[in-house]
């Protein structure tokens, strides 16, 4: 067997699977988004009609879509910077020469990342309970009045953001930690000789040296945060008053609760376009910052 034949033989199974179960459905989704596929069509495809861009036009006229879009952007725009700040802060702490038991701390801070999001969201629902939750109990000790975290439209999204930051910050922390270890030590020694304090060293050396890594984790994290679903599904059901309804939640309800698969496909492509635009924007900003 030649090398080329062996290569084809070994690559083909995976490529066929990806073609059949990913590329084909993506193309089908595009076609589906141009039809009125609904519960009737699900029973009998004779009811299927081509409707052009009607699903997209209706979506743009649907206030619920704009609500979901606004909520998803809120979650991303507040959640991602917060999450990255915690990741960088904890990475710097764990990386510090003064830190003891670094491995142990790294593991402890990473633990929430490997947990099951549904299971830990259930925990947080009880921790956030207005009367018996330990979060309000702790805030009470500091003199704050109890907050109806998951029942008040103003606090439900902040509560979900807090939860998401807790769940995810460890992931980027480990990546930033690896990048910190690649910064040459003599840069800091030279800065120290020049009399730069810890704060200046962080701003002038650490942050610029982390630039490419931060761009990478930011792109990945934004893409992940756009796919908000399990947290509101478990913690708030998208409420109260649709204040935590996300785009993916809307897709799920449209597609698998009401069986409007045509409209749901349109939501899927709008989500895709949003994520694509967000990635492109960040890469552009990253290039400008590097120049």
């Amino acid at each position: 067997m030649t090398r080329a034949q062996a290569g084809l033989l070994l690559a083909a199974p995976a490529l066929v699977v990806i073609a059949v179960f990913f590329f084909l459905p993506v193309l089908a989704a595009l076609a589906l988004s141009l039809t009125d596929f609904d519960l009737y069509a699900l029973a009998d495809s004779g009811y299927l009609r081509f409707v052009g861009l009607r699903n997209y036009v209706q979506l743009l006229g649907n206030p619920l879509f704009w609500q979901a879009l606004g909520n998803t952007l809120y979650f991303t725009v507040v959640g991602v910077p917060l999450s990255l700040a915690v990741s960088v802060g904890t990475a710097v702490l764990v990386h510090s020469r003064l830190a003891r038991c670094r491995g142990l701390f790294r593991t402890a801070l990473f633990a929430p990342v490997v947990t099951t999001v549904v299971a830990v969201a259930v925990i947080w629902r009880y921790l956030l309970h207005t009367r018996y939750g330990l979060i309000n109990y702790g805030l009470g000790k500091l003199g704050f009045a109890p907050i109806d975290w998951l029942g008040d439209p103003h606090f439900a999204m902040p509560a979900i953001i807090l939860f998401a930051v807790w769940k995810n910050f460890g992931y980027n922390m480990v990546i930033v930690l690896a990048a910190l270890q690649n910064i040459p030590e003599d840069l800091y020694e030279a800065a120290e000789l020049d009399g730069a304090g810890a704060g200046q060293q962080f701003l002038r050396i650490t942050l610029p040296m982390l630039g490419p890594t931060l761009l990478f984790v930011s792109i990945m994290t934004v893409a992940g945060y756009f796919q908000l679903f399990a947290e509101p599904y478990v913690m708030t059901l998208g409420g109260p008053g649709q204040s935590t309804l996300s785009v993916l939640y809307l897709l799920y309800e449209e597609g698998f609760k009401w069986w409007n698969l045509g409209r749901a496909s349109a939501v899927a492509f709008v989500l895709f376009l949003m994520m694509f635009a967000a990635t492109a924007l960040q890469m552009r900003l990253g290039r400008q910052a590097a120049a």
Binding site: F22, L24, L248, L251, F256, A264, S265
Partner: peptide
């Protein structure tokens, strides 16, 4: 290129399949 396409786009037709 496919890495930028979120898995959710394929989900609905995959279900029908």
């Amino acid at each position: 290129g496919a890495l930028v396409i979120p898995a959710q786009v394929a989900m609905l037709p995959l279900f029908l399949m």
